[in-house]
Amino acid sequence: MLHDLQKSFADVALTNSVEALLPHVATPRGAIERRLGVYHANTLNSLIDVLSAAYPVIQRIVGDRFFQALAKDFIKTHPPQQPTLFRYGDALPDFISSFAPANDLPYLPDVARLEWTRVEAYFAADSAALNPERLAEVPAEQIADIKFSVSPTLRLLESDVPIFTLWHVNQPDQDRVPEIDFSHPESGFVLRPAHTVMQRVVPMETLIWLRALTSGETLGTATELALTHENTFDLQNTLRQHLVDGTFTELYL
């Protein structure tokens, strides 16, 4: 009984359909729709605000009106499934792929994926960076066997389009948007070392190296894979950068 009542109120909030709720309300019909409409409008707008907060770059790329329409369509077909709003919107990148008015902007879903990745990194668990001196303690003949555990905030990304550049030129402090070569692929990672989410573009061989280490391969194997892709892969500098960034949290032998 209570469940039905709540369900019919949820219908009002999400879709503005008052039919199921009518028998439960004593007010005359015209007033009901107007009053209940407030719940619908507020629900819709708060969900749009959530999406807007998670996808500011998409909003800037397509403009406010387009974003609102996109968000409304998304909310209609993907109402929240859990009571935590910070997780709401993970399905938007895929939704954009199927959103006909966005067909002309094929780079949009991948840019949205980057934005969501940043949200994930922001809310992922904290972790302490590996102390570089731990590496210095490993005997030379065992270096190849080292395995790392990586930060829970690390996310690797690979795209056919320049997602990191697109993200960067659409930050609020960028007032001049340059022409972009949309055919330039970019790979990189997102990481939250302390409290600020950061991202870096890396060459493909570094992505391969990171991907191997993340999936539990040894340093020797990961380095071999990276060198096979690009024989100028610079282990020393790459490793240094990731020790500084805090990509790794622990090492095992």
């Binding site: 790329i61 403009g63 009106r65 387009f66 659409n170 948007v177 972009i180």
Partner: peptide
Amino acid sequence: LVAEGTCVEMGGNLE
């Protein structure tokens, strides 16, 4: 429904 944000300035879309 037309995208009217910075996408226009960035040079539109892919081929």
